[in-house]
């Protein structure tokens, strides 16, 4: 059995980042965030802690909304959603995200799907985790070409939410809205500071010798490879079976 898969580190890190939430929502086609949320839910249940509610958009099994696709936003607007995940074709050093496209708008090339609910959820969900596996200077840019949603807002603008962390395939960053900017928290195993600097289009704060991202312990790994993969395969069968075969190899 392979020791720890890079994606298992991401899933376990997400579970840690979500610690303390009562209700986390996950967008459609986000298997890693969903797995992280399921892991936290299972850990809390085992510990007898208050339950974690998980809503996966587009899922029947993990979705209790009955008022159509508007309900997620109503729920978030009332402060009933503590955490959400956003990605983006571009993320810049001030936490601005671009889901619309590169180059000059509106003739963006390439054009990406669009902003979805980001221009609202980024403002009203307290703990938004920016998640993008690709860590490159193409994605992590100095300034986004189009702001789907800004990382911070001026004083006086209603804002109860915003970015808490940025998790990529190479590293974990926290976000400081007073600067505003990112701080490197840890490097995933197999990656070093020079590599991460070269692959990041914006400057970030960091320790002289950054920590390594914590790997899941044996109990967490067992839970992840058993119960969590079972739960995940209901919604993301392809992802779950691929991860299973890669961790069994």
């Amino acid at each position: 059995m392979r020791e720890v898969h890079p994606r298992e580190i991401l899933i376990a890190t997400i579970a840690r980042l979500l610690d303390g939430v009562r209700h986390v929502a996950v967008g459609a086609s986000s298997p890693i965030p969903a797995a992280g949320a399921m892991l936290l839910r299972a850990q809390k249940k085992r510990a007898g802690a208050p339950p974690v509610r998980l809503s996966i958009l587009g899922s029947v099994e993990h979705n209790f909304f009955t008022n159509g696709s508007a309900e997620l936003f109503d729920c978030a607007g009332q402060g009933r959603i503590d955490a959400f995940f956003l990605g983006g074709g571009q993320i810049d050093g001030r936490g601005n995200i671009n889901l619309v496209g590169a180059g000059e708008y509106p003739g963006s090339t390439p054009r990406w799907p669009g902003s979805f609910g980001s221009a609202y959820l980024y403002f009203v969900v307290p703990r938004v985790i920016l998640f993008r596996e690709e860590h490159s200077s193409r994605v992590l840019v100095e300034t986004v070409d189009f702001t789907s949603a800004p990382g911070t807002s001026e004083d006086g603008v209603y804002r109860t939410g915003g970015p808490a962390a940025l998790l990529t395939g190479k590293a974990l960053f926290s976000f400081d809205k007073t600067r505003p900017g990112f701080t490197l928290e840890s490097l995933h195993p197999g990656h070093d500071l020079a590599e991460v600097k070269a692959a990041t289009g914006f400057g970030f704060a960091h320790a002289g010798s950054p920590k390594q991202t914590e790997a899941p312990d044996r109990a967490t790994l067992d839970l992840l490879r058993g119960q969590i993969m079972d739960e995940l395969s209901e919604t993301y069968p392809d992802f779950a079976s691929r991860l299973r075969s890669e961790t069994a190899a």
Binding site: Y105, A119, F123, T147, P150
Partner: peptide, 12 residues
Amino acid sequence: MRGLIGSDILRF
């Protein structure tokens, strides 16, 4: 509606 302020969505 809340949100949107400071976005390019609103600007356009």
